[in-house]
Amino acid sequence: MSNARHDAATDGSTDTGTATDTGTDVDTGTDADDDTDGHTATGRQHGTTTTGETDERIRAEWTDYEFAGDVALSVEDLDVYYGDEQALRGVSLDVPAESVTALIGPSGCGKSTFLRCLNRMNDRISSARVEGSVELDGEEIYQDAADLVALRKRVGMVFQSPNPFPKSIRDNVSYGPRKHGDVDTGLLSRLLGRDDEETEAELVERCLRNAALWDEVNDRLDDNALGLSGGQQQRLCIARCLAVDPDVILMDEPASALDPIATAKIEDLIEDLAEEYTVVVVTHNMQQAARISDQTAVFLTGGRLVEYDDTDKIFENPESQRVEDYVTGKFG
């Protein structure tokens, strides 16, 4: 086996130190990536591709990232195909809990695909095929008995462009809990006088405060959410996601459609969220990744994970020449 995590384990590192990894290590990934995934480690073979990207072999230890603490998500040997095209090749990485992990890379490198694998949103795309393993707290999410509803409750997602529902601000926030039966304000329960209006009000306020939106909208909770500005809409989507109380929050370039002020607000918010939640954020903005994340994974062309380490290490002293070229802006 060639993938990073197994190598790390044989090195005797403290990686994957939780009990979550015992038992069901379902290795559905094929060994097909053996020849592609650079375990040959022949060092840097320089050359340049047409896009100005240096040609080199990926070395396994570049993606070894050792950290103390719990593992929230553990990905092993993930391959994704869209039809005949392979979008991800043998990606393995562990996401530490309660921190911000940034995924960066040029467009088309598969970072968004990778993100969508973590809550199985790729299932929506009929041509997508996923091989490999993703474990959430030690439970395999790619198995037949997996409950997508339960999974997505625990792994929330914020999309690239804000997508509030065409409902009131209040209803947007309480949508998830209501659908999960945690809050009941339906007509029937109101008629019977057993609705949870107070619980709902508390929940809405808490989530909007956590998403730093409360002060801007508390006087118009019944207005249609589509009337908010783009930045407000995106924070509303974050609040909506918090209302379900997930463990992990996935964010797919959450600030790419926003102006600088709104972006700054979202960035502050992400840093705050990491105190309670595990945040995985995709961004194409390297400064943003450097500002907000604790560790950074760099994907480069062809759907490969090239390097994964502390954010400081990636931006100051990367192992890979290509990563260095990328973060210094030579291509991308």
């Binding site: 949103m121 999309f159 659908k179 996601c241």
Partner: peptide, 21 residues
């Protein structure tokens, strides 16, 4: 728009809930 449907599904609702709500 697909984004609205994905938004709902990503909250952990069933397909049927997304359709009706």
């Amino acid at each position: 728009p697909e984004s609205m449907k994905s938004g709902s599904l990503a909250m952990g609702t069933t397909d049927w809930q997304t359709m009706t709500a």
